[in-house]
């Protein structure tokens, strides 16, 4: 099974689980985007309580060479008041996005990573990072990092920064 197949399968599973909350996905021109919808709860609290990497991870999420960023293209939310999975205050995560598959050096496993954009303020401008592992041209949009994914948000669609959310193991 190829990586793309695994991603597609994973995305299909995620879509099936979340259909009731995301019925609008039926309108999408490509089914694969459904997989790129991690649950992104609103975090409330002091900055130090923001969800960051999980304890067993290694590396600096404010560095472009952090393992989750293997297919990212943009400003790292970890440097902008957010984290790898939390949008900075006053911005809203894009409900749809592109996905990549990155190898976690700490456990040797590959994970599907969702690169949701955070939207509603101008570009953060900090920690710009472009890595293109398995990135595809935009005619294959679900795995393309060139697109502005600030689509369908409520507070506005201007791009601020990018998350790198673990969706699950790739296989």
């Amino acid at each position: 099974m190829t990586r793309l197949d695994r991603i597609a399968e994973h995305m299909a599973r995620k879509a099936a689980k979340s259909t009731s909350r995301r019925s609008f996905l039926a309108k999408l021109g490509f089914g694969a985007a459904a997989a790129s919808l991690p649950l992104l709860p609103v975090r409330r609290g002091r900055a130090e309580t923001i969800q960051g990497p999980q304890p067993q991870e290694k590396g600096n999420p404010e560095s472009c060479d952090y393992w989750r960023y293997c297919a990212i293209d943009g400003y790292l939310c970890s440097c902008c008041g957010g984290s790898t999975s939390s949008c900075p205050p006053g911005t809203e995560p894009s409900p749809i996005t592109w996905v990549g598959t990155c190898r976690n050096p700490a456990d040797g496993r590959e994970y599907v990573i969702s690169y949701n954009d955070c939207c509603g303020k101008s570009s953060c401008g900090r920690c710009v990072c472009t890595r293109n592992e398995r990135d595809t041209p935009i005619y294959a949009p679900s795995t393309s990092n060139d697109l502005d994914w600030c689509l369908g948000t409520q507070v506005g669609a201007v791009y601020n920064c990018s998350l790198a959310v673990v969706l699950g193991a790739a296989e």
Binding site: S122, G156, A157, V158
Partner: peptide, 10 residues
Amino acid sequence: YYARGTRGER
């Protein structure tokens, strides 16, 4: 364009 710069109606 957005009505209020970075937000609002597109």
